[in-house]
């Protein structure tokens, strides 16, 4: 992937497919490190499946035999000296508190660090693709935070769907302005 924001777009699809109601994307960044965390309350994975997800030849998909999402994220992190950790609680093990958290750390000053890229478009694309999910996007950079919380938006919007173009434009502008103010 050319941008880490594309890895985020890809990884978050797993949370959508896991039937999550809430997906939290957290970027925690300082001068030297970037930690990307995607946390969902989807169906989770059993210990057995969790052991296999880093293997590209494991996938739950039926249209092809190769699952490159997590291996690509792992590659991007490890080539900077960082790592990927995944914790998951399966719905079958705990019907109430289940879900998956995937976390990737990067050393930004490493030659092989992939730039974050257009994260605003990634957030807009995710909301467009799964407008019924509650998304919380948070990017902490030092003392500053960029935040978008669809729950807060829904309190105002009522039943107006988030994938309407005017709402998507508002989200794009909102995030762009927050980033510009950093």
């Amino acid at each position: 992937m050319k941008e880490l924001s594309l890895n985020i777009l890809d990884i978050a699809q797993n949370s959508i497919k896991a039937g999550a109601s809430n997906i939290h994307i957290l970027l925690n960044e300082n001068e030297e490190t970037l930690i990307i965390t995607v946390r969902d309350d989807g169906c989770g994975m059993t210990a057995e499946i969790l052991e296999r997800v880093e293997n590209p030849f494991y996938t739950t998909r039926t249209t092809r035999d190769v699952g490159m999402g997590i291996p690509l994220l792992k590659l991007a992190a490890e080539q900077t000296g960082g790592e990927v950790t995944i914790t998951s609680v399966s719905e079958t093990d705990d019907p109430v508190n289940h879900g998956t958290t995937i976390s990737a750390s990067f050393f930004k000053n490493h030659l092989d660090f992939t730039p974050l890229g257009d994260i605003v478009t990634t957030v807009c694309t995710l909301i467009h693709g799964a407008p019924d999910i509650d998304w919380r996007y948070e990017h902490i950079y030092g003392d500053n935070t960029v935040l978008l919380d669809t729950k807060q938006m829904r309190e105002i919007l009522g039943d107006v769907p988030l994938d309407d173009i005017e709402i998507l434009n508002w989200i794009r502008q909102s995030l762009s302005e927050e980033y510009a103010a950093l």
């Binding site: 978008l148 807060q152 919007l157 508002w170 909102s174 927050e178």
Partner: peptide
């Protein structure tokens, strides 16, 4: 987040 008042206007 950007002005939430704008969202209310969009909703109307």
């Amino acid at each position: 987040m950007k002005s939430l008042a704008e969202l209310a206007a969009i909703r109307e």
